[in-house]
Computed example of a mutant assay.
Amino acid sequence: MAEESMGLAPENRERLSKRRTASNATVDAIKEYILEHHLRPGDPLPTEASLQGALGVSRSSVREALRTLQSLDIVSIQHGRGMSVGELSFAPMIEAVLFRARLNAKDDLSTLREVVEVRMALDLALTDELIEVYRGSSQPKLREHVKNMRECVEAGRGFASCDEAFHSDLLAATSNHMMQQLGMAFWRIHTVAVPAAGLPQAKDISDTVNAHDAIIDALVAGDAAAYRAAVIEHYRPLRRLLEVAAN
C-alpha cells in the first residue's frame, strides 16, 4: 500500500524513505561483510552492537537490515545462540511463488501450470548427467519408493512423502547442487499449490506412479529418448487436470 493511501504526512513519508534507504544500505554492507570475511552458511556473525560499530550505522538500521536478511535466509537469528550466516536456501522463493499461485488460483491457474512446466524442464535438462550416473545400475532404493507410492494409491492414500524421497534421491546423484535445490524447491511448490488450488487427485494418478518406474528403467538402460518420454508421462495426468480445471 502506498504511503499516500495510508494517510502519512509529507514529513513522515520523507522520514520513512530515509529510513528505508539507510536500511537498504546496511543490508548491502552486511552482505559485503559476509563476502569479505569469506563466511559460509552456519558461520557466526558479530553482535548487533559490533556490526553497528564496524559499519558506522545506527542500531535501528542494523536491526531492520538483519530482519530483511533473515527473511531472505541470508542471516539466521536464534535466541540464545546469536547470529550466523543463513542456509541461503530457496525458501523465500518458494513462499513468493506459492503466494503468487494462490493469487491466481481461482482465475486461470497459470502459475501452477508454469510450476509444472519448470519442474519438467529441470528434469529434462538433467537427462545426460543422470543417464551417465545411473546407466547399468539396479537402484533398489528408487524402486522401493515407487513400490510405496503404488501401495499408497491402492489404499486410497496420498503418496507425497514417497514421491519426495524418490525425487530427492534421484537428484542427489547429480553434481549440480543448484539443480538439486531448484528441483526440490519446485517439488515443494507443486505439492503445496495443487491442493491449495482445490484440485482433486487426478483419476489417472496411477500413470504418474508407473512413470516413476519408467524413469528408472530408462536411466538404467541409458536410453535418453525413453527417459524424456517417461518424464513427460510423469506430468501428463496433472497437466490434463489443469487443462480441464482452466476450462
Rank of each mutant, 00 (worst) to 15 (best):
M1G: 10
M1N: 02
S5G: 02
L8Q: 02
L8V: 03
A9S: 05
P10R: 12
E11G: 01
R13E: 10
E14Y: 04
S17R: 15
K18A: 06
T21Y: 13
S23T: 15
A25F: 12
T26W: 00
D28N: 05
A29R: 11
I30A: 06
I34L: 12
E36A: 12
H37G: 02
H38I: 07
L39M: 15
G42K: 04
L45M: 13
T47L: 14
T47K: 07
A54Q: 15
L55S: 08
L55W: 13
G56V: 09
G56L: 14
V57M: 12
S58R: 11
R59C: 01
E64P: 01
T68A: 08
L69A: 00
D73A: 02
D73Y: 01
D73E: 15
I77L: 14
G80W: 08
M83T: 03
E87H: 09
A91V: 12
E95P: 00
V97N: 11
V97K: 10
R100Y: 03
L103A: 12
S110I: 13
E114G: 11
V116S: 13
V116C: 14
E117F: 07
E117K: 15
V118H: 04
R119T: 01
M120V: 06
M120W: 01
A121T: 02
D123V: 00
L124P: 10
L124N: 08
T127W: 12
Q139P: 01
L142G: 04
V146A: 15
K147S: 09
K147G: 01
K147Q: 12
K147R: 14
K147Y: 04
C152P: 00
C152G: 01
R157L: 09
G158S: 13
F159K: 06
S161M: 04
C162Y: 11
C162N: 14
E164D: 11
F166K: 12
F166A: 08
D169A: 10
D169Q: 14
L170I: 02
L171M: 14
A172L: 10
A172F: 08
S175D: 14
H177Y: 03
H177W: 04
G183F: 04
M184C: 07
M184W: 05
F186P: 00
W187N: 10
V194T: 13
P195Y: 09
Q201W: 06
Q201D: 05
Q201A: 14
K203I: 06
D207R: 15
A211R: 09
A211V: 04
D213P: 00
I215M: 15
I215H: 07
D217F: 02
L219K: 08
V220T: 08
A221P: 01
D223P: 00
A226V: 03
A226L: 10
Y227S: 02
R228M: 09
A229W: 06
A230W: 08
V231S: 03
I232F: 05
I232K: 09
E233N: 07
R240P: 00
R240K: 14
R240F: 01
R240V: 06
L241G: 05
L241A: 07
V244T: 14
N247G: 15
N247V: 07
N247D: 08
